[in-house]
Simulated assay, not measured.
Amino acid sequence: MTSEDLYPVSRLAAAQEATAKAGLDALLLTPGPDLRYVSGYEALPLERLTCLVVPASGEAYMMVPRLELAAAQASPASRLGVEFVPWGETDDPYAAVAARLGGAAKVGLADRMWAMASLRFRDAMPGTEQVLAGTVLRELRMRKSPAEVAALREAGAAIDAVHRQVPGFLRPGRTEREVGRDIAEAILSAGHHSVDFVIVGSGPNAASPHHEVSDRVIQAGEPIVVDIGGQLHNGYCSDSTRNYCIGEPPAEYTRYFEVLRRAQDAACAAVRPGVSCESIDAAAREVIAEAGYGEHFIHRTGHGIGIETHEEPYIVAGNDEPMEPGFAFSVEPGIYLAGRHGARIEDILVCTDGGGERLNNTTRDLVVV
């Protein structure tokens, strides 16, 4: 799997076509996932403007600080055949983009564009309406190519390898932070380029879905939620949650963990082309609600994943987007009893012609250490 497979030059033409279809004059893509998706260039997010200008018609070009020109030319963006327009320290690149666009009525700004750059573009083009580029690029980014699915499968296998090591990091008397440090090292050793997040929630901290880590000392008999993810060198992300306990867990926890297992299985089984995103959320939520834990499932069932850990489509009530082959997303229902403990089971799935393929394959059972 090469950079050309994951970041094909055809994406630029697809982005231009989508820009025109949306009635925009251009996309302005600064460093971040939108720029990387279209060009393959992982540009540094700095105060000096780097911006790929994708007009609805005509030739795209990239404004780039002169001192970063060589890096841009050495990046996958060079395969696009776009003009690199270097600018010097005393130049105004925002004014230069405005002049070349020639009074654009409406432009799409990269979703992760810094406010500093957005406001500078607004000053340079006071009569131009600004919207999010994501309204245009979402249709492209949601539909993963076979190469992208292969990259996500690789990421899933890498994070699975880390979860297999987690029991060896857990013992009474260690802090969440100490365990988290070991996990972060394992994420990098398993082939990730970077660690995006490490959640180690023990005891009552397991009832906080985005707890991360603390100096709390882990005790025997406490459930532990471990939610981890990172990014591979190719830019694609992993994300998986498993549950552990040092010694026997509380009986109450065991009861609702079995409910959670059934809910996650039900949501995964509901995945197939044509069903709505919200129906997958409902499949998990119905099982949990019928068991009396509905009020303790406090977040959506899932999120899309690709070159961002969280991207579209979102698996949540109100999203009637129909599933299509190539959609990749998490299925991660949770039950959280505030002040006591909690659990979440998360796999990444990809929608296929025949249903849903799980990209995480470690045990979903509670692992008792």
Rank of each mutant, 00 (worst) to 15 (best):
A117T: 05
L119W: 11
R120L: 11
F121I: 04
F121G: 07
R122G: 14
R122K: 15
R122N: 09
A124L: 06
M125D: 08
P126K: 11
P126V: 02
P126S: 07
G127C: 09
E129H: 12
E129K: 15
Q130Y: 10
V136A: 13
L137A: 13
E139D: 15
E139N: 13
M142W: 06
M142I: 09
S145E: 11
S145Y: 10
S145P: 13
P146M: 06
E148V: 03
E148D: 12
V149G: 10
V149L: 13
A150C: 09
A150E: 12
A151Y: 01
A151G: 10
A151I: 02
L152K: 09
R153I: 01
R153Y: 03
R153P: 05
E154N: 09
A155K: 03
G156E: 04
G156I: 01
D160W: 04
A161G: 08
V162A: 02
H163K: 09
H163L: 04
Q165A: 12
V166G: 04
V166M: 03
F169G: 00
L170Y: 03
L170M: 07
R171H: 10
R171W: 02
R174P: 12
R174C: 09
R174T: 07
T175Y: 07
E178S: 15
V179A: 08
V179N: 10
G180L: 02
G180D: 01
G180Y: 00
D182N: 09
D182R: 07
I183S: 00
I183R: 00
A184E: 06
A186Q: 00
I187Q: 01
I187E: 00
L188Q: 04
S189L: 00
A190S: 14
A190T: 02
